[in-house]
Design a protein around this nucleic acid. Structure first.
Ligand code: FES
Ligand code: FES
Lengths: 144, 144
DNA sequence: ATATTAAAAGACCTTTTGGTCTTTTAATAT
DNA sequence: ATATTAAAAGACCAAAAGGTCTTTTAATAT
């Protein structure tokens, strides 16, 4: 569904958010370990997220990653689009240059609703909502 | 949804099937042009499909690509799995090592049904059924 | 001040994906 | 036989994705 970078980003962000709820500010080593992602790559990805303004960080002793709680919830779609580009799930399933109701490819009728529900999923779910699900013990987050 | 190679393969196969219905046996130049795909790459992909037994070809004058009409219909899933590997849409949306109803990631509940409908789509649709749709004028196949 | 801690920056590398092109092989028509 | 046609084979190349590692910068504690 998502590429590796997006996966690590999403897992990392949700992990940080859960820890923040618990009053903890994790660093890259902890995050990478807990979400079962490559250490340095995870670090690089988190830095990018900070530079893009989705996440905050502090250096030095006691440093780590955290969220600005004043900002509004962060929909998955925002992250996915920032990482994979705006047309991540907007294209035609058959690869036609444009997807068009009036000029449908052979898959359009069946694929268009699926694509719409993916869009809904990433629009409605936010890092915060997933973190709450997790914290409530409804979901697991990591490797098995 | 699919990677480029799979897209070209699907478009190419459906195109060949449509032409076969019309009593024509197209070659790579025609196919690549009509499905708006890179010429040599398309050739390579079609050759692979022939070697895998999904498609037939003949060399020399009057040669081209066609289907063995005695074979059963070819589900998209078979092609996708042959090209992208078996776990194309079986994995966890969050990237966990295994997707499990009893140990769900934060996206599982919403993503699992979507994944199931993608599976249904590629299982039920075949090259032949899409070709018929196209031939009946219900769909466009190519570029615009 | 300085030692320690931890993120930021960035160079570098590997694998996969996507793509191009030339040469060879096989079929057909003359 | 041979010229022509068209797929098969395979070498080669470029970009993107995925990943590693070292050096630098900034914060904190002593
Ligand atoms: S035209 Fe192909 S999915 Fe809409
Ligand atoms: S556990 Fe993640 S989709 Fe099922």
């Amino acid at each position: 569904m998502f590429n590796k970078e997006t996966e690590y980003a999403l897992r990392g962000l949700v992990y940080v958010r859960v820890q923040q709820i618990l009053g903890h500010k994790p660093g890259i080593i902890e995050i990478a370990t807990e979400i079962d992602a490559p250490l340095f790559y995870t670090g690089k990805i988190l830095q990018r997220l900070v530079k893009m303004g989705f996440l905050m960080s502090s250096k030095g002793k006691g440093g780590g990653f955290y969220f600005d709680l004043l900002k509004p919830d962060l929909p998955l779609k925002t992250i996915v689009e920032a990482i994979e580009g705006g047309k991540a799930y907007s294209g035609c399933g058959f690869g036609l240059k444009q997807c068009n109701d009036d000029n449908p490819c052979p898959l359009h009728e069946q694929y268009a609703p699926i694509r719409a529900s993916i869009d809904k999923l990433v629009t409605l779910n936010t890092v915060q909502s997933l973190a709450l699900n997790y914290k409530n013990g409804e979901d697991i987050l990591l490797k098995l």
